[in-house]
Design a protein around this nucleic acid. Sequence first.
DNA 1: CGTGTAAGGAATTCTGACACG
DNA 2: CGTGTAAGGAATTCTGACACG
Lengths: 106, 106
Amino acid sequence: MAKEISYKERKVISIGVVSELTGLSERQIRYYEQKKLLSPERSNKGYRKYSFLDVETLIEIANQREEGVPTGEIKEELEKKYKKGSKLHKKMISGQINAQFGTHKK
Amino acid sequence: MAKEISYKERKVISIGVVSELTGLSERQIRYYEQKKLLSPERSNKGYRKYSFLDVETLIEIANQREEGVPTGEIKEELEKKYKKGSKLHKKMISGQINAQFGTHKK
DNA sequence: CGTGTAAGGAATTCTGACACG
DNA sequence: CGTGTAAGGAATTCTGACACG
């Protein structure tokens, strides 16, 4: 009964790749994190690592921002969606919460 | 009809993370690539990027190697599995062949 | 408020090679 | 054959700050 996490939720992508995938600057990505619109994990040395879910979230943020929606509103919107998901997935996946791969603890 | 690629096949993971995920050294991972057991993509600056499928392949390789199976045999084995997959997926996914995310071409 | 940039440092990745066997 | 390592260089990421507005 391991708490397996799908590829979509696994945090393994560096900020540089996320930047390419989303078209956002690293500055923007870090800023949205500061505003708590998403929560990447950190490697031992402090490097941010994102999941594909994070990438999707960022793309949504980018779309909202283009329409002039302030980060505060986007944050609330994401939180609603998050609750919706919770209903479906119950406590299997707790949103942006950190999650370890589980086996290696280097 | 975009040639979408699932998260599993998308090449976005750096060798350092792959090393943590598989328990293999970077040296080993690069060596298996040299022996053509897998084919990561390269970023603009030449950095290797792997998919979750590559990670799974590497775990299989690790298991075989532990049993003393030489890379040559593992390679053949992987190629058989690859053909099997082709039957199921037809030409949707061409094994270890490179595949672009598609939208951004920085 | 949201994002760009220069700044300095620390960690990552790359290749080719020597080593052992 | 398979893998470790030291070597030097290039690119990445991090944080805190100044800037504009």
